[in-house]
């Protein structure tokens, strides 16, 4: 169910672009999905194939770029990747860190005819 609302969101974006740019066919859709977004891309294509039937997005291939989660320590300035959601600085052990990447979930671009 949840994948369905996501794929519907993607289709809405494609449809609103189609109004602006007047294309007839979408070959591929580039998505950016951060590791902390909670979205697991494996199933999106299959749901998308079903949900996009009869829309301008029908037949498009989803190209997914995963973005790893990263943090920066507010104490020592160290930057590193976040593993298993753990927000502890790998250099000094502080929990005073901020997330700098990994929450992304957006349509980056469309390849159209």
């Amino acid at each position: 169910m949840h994948e369905l609302s996501i794929t519907e969101g993607i289709i809405k974006i494609v449809e609103s672009e189609a109004k602006k740019h007047h294309f007839n066919k979408v070959n591929s859709i580039k998505l950016v999905v951060g590791e902390l977004s909670g979205v697991f891309p494996q199933l999106i294509q299959e749901y998308f194939n079903i949900a996009s039937r009869g829309t301008i997005a029908e037949g498009a291939e989803l190209i997914i770029r995963r973005v790893e989660a990263r943090m920066k320590c507010n104490e020592c300035g160290n930057e590193s990747i976040i593993e298993r959601h753990r927000l502890r600085c790998k250099n000094c052990g502080s929990l005073n860190v901020r997330i700098t990447a990994g929450k992304e979930f957006y349509v980056d671009s469309l390849e159209v005819d």
């Binding site: 996501i6 969101g9 672009e17 294309f23 957006y106 671009s109 469309l110 159209v112």
Partner: peptide, 13 residues
């Protein structure tokens, strides 16, 4: 042709 979009998917939410 490539169209740059950069739109949040759950933006409506």
């Amino acid at each position: 042709m490539e169209i740059k979009v950069v739109k949040q998917i759950l933006e409506w939410n």
